[in-house]
């Protein structure tokens, strides 16, 4: 479960070593934009050592490697894959071919280092017009692809438009990515809200992303993590209703019915599926059936 993903600059020891106590469901060790070209080597070794020595129990590890149009990406994978990150975030993924090239190299490193084939996931970062247009083929090109990730800053530069807080300029990309990812059966994550001092803005932006169907949202500031976690967690009302739905449908089945009415509304398969997802998430968060009665 990933509601929040927090970017940490790959060459900043103070941020890296504290990454596991900032509340994010996942941390993204950034070897790309947060690291100057002169420090790529240092960041790669520092991130590798952090993964090797630090305990990030309860917090997934994602590494943003450098893009395939740089001389760094293979060295990045060579360094970090042996320490089993949960996902590799691949910037500027424009086509399925881009993702498949990295997929193939990851398979080589897995074979060389004795890791299970396909055990480390790939999350293409969609941040170009080409990437948006190819979103479904990218999301469905390999079993290694576990999610899509929207990067709005580079995308709006590519679209030659201004990035705004309201985000109308990325409306199409957001909905396109959600549809593409869901059609491919993978998760989808929203771009960070970059004004770290706007506490109301991040709530609004995260809530809108959730309403569109995003699985979670990235952040560039630890300040936004708690808010994002709250927005992407089911409310007590949602959890209570979900349990009522599951109980109602169980009763319906016991009575030989395919559907049943709850609070005056018909309960059918899509509602049951949503309720089951809510319950699964609530249980993963420790919000069990008993707690809703408290």
């Amino acid at each position: 479960m990933r509601r929040s993903m927090l970017f940490l600059p790959g060459n900043n020891p103070n941020m890296l070593i504290n990454g596991n106590c900032l509340g994010a469901d996942a941390v993204i060790f950034d070897l790309e934009d947060a690291v100057s070209p002169a420090e790529k080597d240092a960041a790669r070794i520092l991130v590798r050592n952090t993964m090797r020595y630090m305990d990030f129990r309860g917090c997934e590890i994602i590494v943003r490697i450098n893009s395939i149009d740089t001389p760094y990406w293979k060295a990045d994978l060579d360094a970090v894959l042996p320490y089993k990150p949960n996902l590799i975030l691949l910037p500027k993924t424009g086509t399925a071919s881009d993702a498949l090239g990295v997929d193939a190299y990851m398979a080589q490193v897995e074979a060389r280092t004795g890791l299970e084939q396909g055990s480390i996931g790939l999350m293409p970062l969609i941040e170009t017009a080409m990437g948006v247009e190819n979103a479904f083929s990218i999301a469905s090109c390999s079993k290694r692809v576990k999610a899509l990730f929207l990067g709005a800053e580079d995308l709006t530069a590519d679209l030659q438009c201004k990035r705004t807080k309201e985000g109308r300029e990325i409306e199409y990309a957001r909905t396109r990515l959600v549809v593409a990812a869901r059609a491919a059966g993978v998760d989808v994550y929203d771009t960070p809200f970059t004004d770290v001092n706007d506490d109301e803005g991040v709530v609004k932006d995260a809530s809108y992303a959730k309403a569109l169907g995003f699985t979670g949202k990235a952040s560039i500031s630890p300040r936004h993590v708690e808010v994002i976690n709250q927005v992407f967690s089911p409310s007590l009302k949602d959890i209570t209703y979900a349990y009522e739905v599951v109980e109602a449908i169980a009763q319906a089945k016991a009575q030989g019915k395919g559907a049943i009415s709850l609070h005056g509304k018909m309960i059918d398969a899509p509602i049951v599926a949503r309720a089951e997802r809510t319950i699964a998430m609530a249980e993963a968060l420790g919000l069990g059936k008993e707690e809703r009665h408290e």
Binding site: A42, L46, N49, T50, Y72, A75, D78, A79
Partner: peptide, 29 residues
């Protein structure tokens, strides 16, 4: 922390031998 110390020493060594790790790796697996 020790993991940081070891990373910085290794990086300094790699830089001092005349090539960066990234260029070495990109050129030869």
């Amino acid at each position: 922390l020790e993991c940081v110390l070891r990373a910085r020493v290794e990086t300094a060594v790699l830089r001092a031998i005349g090539e960066t790790a990234s260029l070495r790796t990109a050129a030869r697996t």
